[in-house]
């Protein structure tokens, strides 16, 4: 049982807990997103990344399970922005804010996609994905601070909802991209997307994933994600959603101490199911109580003192 109020406000969103369903995880169906939004411990849910047009993604194999995480190369499958609006119509009884993730191959396409999905009343905020490591065109955008800034400022001009930018760890410029996004008007940052990775079948002498490269997520990613959040928090003033390899409540605490105002869960759902939200919320609550804190806000960035 949680006795402590875990609610947080981030970039204009009010969340019951700081725990968010990360993009790419289960977020295809409106009905399933709504069901997850009602699960105990969930603060917000994020959709799969939506583009302007439908995309099948890559043929299988698209995922590899390792003792320390997952490598996925789904290839951004999605039904396209217009069809996704109908999907959201089915997301009845949403009980947490819904963040719509989206992408584009160019600034124009990003803006057009944002225009379509932002108008749905069930979309509380948008998250711009410029960091998918297995789809070229989307992957490289996230390395270019000036392009990210241009996309953010153009999107912000046409939407009246908070905009997050999901950052790529596959560049030494992550802080520069974060700063550029913030200066261009982004309301928040999600750090990080997966790390570009590879696996080879030693019997068949070939890469396992049909898309060859994939993104590494799960426990192996956590220290890298934590370092990114820490570095960004030092330099950039907008709120950060920490994301990468969280598997227990102390991982959540670490991200918040590093500077995250909320934390997104992804791969851990493959290992523990949706019930993990409740487990981590309870763990976070007991941690705060044990250390004598009354809210999540009190420990955001505390490791920087």
């Amino acid at each position: 049982m949680r006795s402590l109020d875990l609610s947080v406000d981030i970039a204009g969103l009010s969340l019951k807990t700081p725990l968010i369903l990360a993009s790419g995880i289960l977020g295809l169906s409106g009905r399933l997103l709504a069901k997850i939004s009602r699960a105990e411990g969930v603060g917000a849910v994020t959709t799969k990344s939506i583009g302007l047009k439908p995309r099948d993604g890559y043929p299988n194999p698209t995922i590899i399970l390792l003792p320390y995480g997952l490598i996925n190369s789904m290839g951004l499958p999605n039904p396209g922005a217009e069809a996704f609006l109908k999907e959201l119509d089915e997301a009845e009884d949403l009980s947490s804010p819904l963040i719509a993730s989206f992408y584009g191959y160019s600034v124009d396409e990003i803006v057009e996609t944002a225009r379509i999905i932002a108008k749905h009343p069930r979309v509380s905020a948008l998250e711009l994905n410029v960091s998918c490591p297995h789809v070229s065109g989307v992957y490289e955008l996230g390395f270019k601070p000036e392009l990210v800034a241009e996309a953010v400022s153009k999107v912000k001009k046409i939407i009246d909802k908070p905009l997050f930018v999901k950052l790529s760890p596959n560049t030494h410029l992550i802080v520069d991209v974060a700063r550029a996004a913030a200066e261009a008007g982004a309301d928040g940052l999600t750090a990080i997307n997966t790390v570009k990775a590879l696996a080879i079948d030693t019997e068949l002498f070939r890469p396992i994933l049909s898309g060859v490269y994939g993104g590494l997520s799960g426990p192996a990613l956590k220290p890298i994600a934590l370092r990114c959040v820490y570095e960004i928090y030092k330099e950039v003033d907008i709120p950060i959603v920490g994301c990468g390899g969280v598997s227990n409540s102390l991982d959540v605490v670490e991200f918040i101490l590093a500077g995250a105002s909320a934390v997104a869960l992804g791969s851990v759902i493959a290992f523990k199911g949706v019930g993990v939200f409740r487990e981590l919320a309870e763990g976070l609550s007991s941690y705060l109580e044990r250390k004598g804190f009354r809210s999540v806000r009190e420990i955001v960035g505390l490791s920087h003192r």
């Binding site: 289960l26 399933l32 995922i63 499958p77």
Partner: peptide, 18 residues
């Protein structure tokens, strides 16, 4: 429509079940 087979990608969703 099965992709990951491990309850994470959401591709095979029917109703609100995987």
């Amino acid at each position: 429509y099965m992709k990951c087979g491990m309850g994470v990608c959401g591709s095979c969703v029917r109703g609100a079940y995987l």
